[in-house]
Simulated scan of single mutants.
Amino acid sequence: MKRTNNSGAGLSPTSARTVSCPSSGTLGTEWDNTFVHGIKRKGAQPGVPLDYSRYLRLRRQGSQKGGFAYVFPELSRINFRLAYTDQQLANLSITTARTLTTEHQEYRVSVDLTDESSLADALELAKLAYNAT
């Protein structure tokens, strides 16, 4: 993933690389055309940097649909742009995700990252959300 500046342009294009975790080894690779965006706060003055403190928005470059995932680091939570039901999650063998009934109606699936199983489910859901945007 690439971090973006205020304009949304990538700061440093990178080639695919692996991301590793000491306890489990390799988790995955970088996704092409994915950028991390901060949030422009209401009333922010021109030239004020984007805010990366509360959450990060993962967005597929060129998508008109907005972010495919919102990452809340302090909560260890990710909300995905998926309008799935509990039954659809069960059919995918996703056991650690829950459906949301509040917030934006297109972001209805959430995972709290608590262990390797929830991480695996989050990566699977991220792929689904990425491919849908």
Rank of each mutant, 00 (worst) to 15 (best):
S12K: 14
R77D: 07
A9K: 09
V111K: 09
L58N: 01
H104C: 01
L119S: 03
P46H: 04
I39W: 13
L75N: 11
D86F: 08
K2A: 04
K2P: 04
D51G: 05
G43T: 02
V111Q: 05
A122P: 02
S7V: 03
Y107E: 04
T29K: 03
K2Y: 12
L75E: 13
T18E: 11
T101D: 15
N131E: 15
T102S: 15
R57P: 02
N5S: 10
R98M: 12
R98L: 13
P73R: 03
T96K: 13
P49T: 01
S53V: 10
K2G: 06
Q61W: 13
G47R: 09
T85L: 08
K40R: 15
Q105P: 15
W31S: 00
P46E: 09
D51Y: 12
N131T: 10
A9C: 02
N33F: 12
I78D: 04
H104Q: 12
S7D: 13
G66P: 01
R81W: 08
T101N: 14
F80A: 01
G8W: 08
T29L: 06
L123K: 15
R81L: 05
G28L: 06
A126R: 07
G67P: 05
N79Q: 14
A9G: 03
N33G: 00
A132W: 03
R54L: 11
I78N: 03
G67T: 01
T133R: 06
V109S: 04
F68N: 02
D112T: 07
S76D: 15
Q61A: 13
A120V: 12
G25I: 05
A126V: 07
N79H: 11
M1K: 01
A122Q: 05
G43M: 12
Y55M: 11
G67K: 03
A69H: 11
R108Y: 03
I78Y: 07
L75A: 08
S12P: 01
N131I: 01
Y70V: 04
L125W: 06
G67H: 13
P13H: 05
T101V: 08
P22D: 05
S76I: 01
Q87P: 02
G38P: 13
Q105T: 11
T99C: 10
L128W: 14
L100T: 09
R98V: 13
T95A: 14
V36D: 03
L27R: 15
P49G: 04
P22Q: 02
G66A: 11
H37V: 00
R77M: 09
V111W: 11
T18A: 05
V111I: 09
